[in-house]
Amino acid sequence: MADDAILQVKGLVTSFQTEAGTIRAVEDVSFDVHKGQTLGIVGESGCGKSVTSLSIMRLLPKPFGHIESGEIILDKQDLLKLPAKKMHHIRGNRISMIFQEPMTALNPVHRIGKQIGESFMLHQPDMNEQAIYEASVEMLHLVGIPAPEQRIQEYPHQLSGGMRQRVMIAIALACKPDILIADEPTTALDVTIQAQILELMKSLQKTSKMAIIFITHDLGVIAEVCDDVVVMYAGKIAEKASVHDLFQSPRHPYTKGLLSAIPKLDNPPKQKLQTIEGSVPDLMSLPTGCRFQNRCFYMEERCQSQPPPLEQIDTDHFVNCHRWKEI
């Protein structure tokens, strides 16, 4: 499958310098992203899913964030080895990103038109003003904003959250990127708007054949939009599979826990919600051995002494557990 991978992340390790010491927010994360497909990265807050996406964009907060090792390969070149200037041509052009908070992700003092047009100005310098205007209106039209000629003159505060996220998508897709990274794009929106935005992303993907990396904590969203899924826990990949395999035959106890925590419509009402007992270990003081040990029903001695390897159990199914065969 690696042949048609448009983006490969190999052995990514990202750490942060904090006052208390160095923490590794992402450790040994690898995955492939395929053209026209959607890869979901799912996990709890602090599991490293956003840091992974920021690492791909090389947008880690400076000077604290630091990529220790690994490769991020786009077009046979390692993005991590590119000089910073070359990265400017990648961002917004080859790889775009949309963020969780549409309310604050747009500059409050610039008109919508200017913020979309900026992408064209940066990456297609031969476009004149009129062409940029027309292309911007076209983008707004594409993301389903009514009366784009009027909206383009407005400021972000005049738009609703859903509309702003559409504008963000318009900005991100302006230069027809190969990869769109969507970092919890619907988390701040209400459910009906969320469905609209997901629908929009899916239909745009169909026409443009771009790959999407979809970061979320919501397994329902994963099931709806993704082709492949990476489940992360405490900075490491717990399980990696096609969306079908993951929901049909989850292997990692954490994945099983997550899936059973989804409330079902046919459950009797007022029933106690399923949870995974305990909490994520502190990244400052990770246990030796498996990182999920303190919350795992299947924990045994070797889980405490040695970290499990990421084992391949099927063509596209990987799991990071000593006991996946037994459970």
Partner: peptide, 25 residues
């Protein structure tokens, strides 16, 4: 702020993000 991250994700250099986006705010 988030919008500076957006600007840099768009492909702006840090310098342009400062002067074109953060400065007026």
């Amino acid at each position: 702020s988030d919008y500076i991250r957006t600007a840099i994700a768009k492909g702006l250099s840090f310098r342009s993000a400062v002067f074109k986006h953060a400065f007026r705010n």
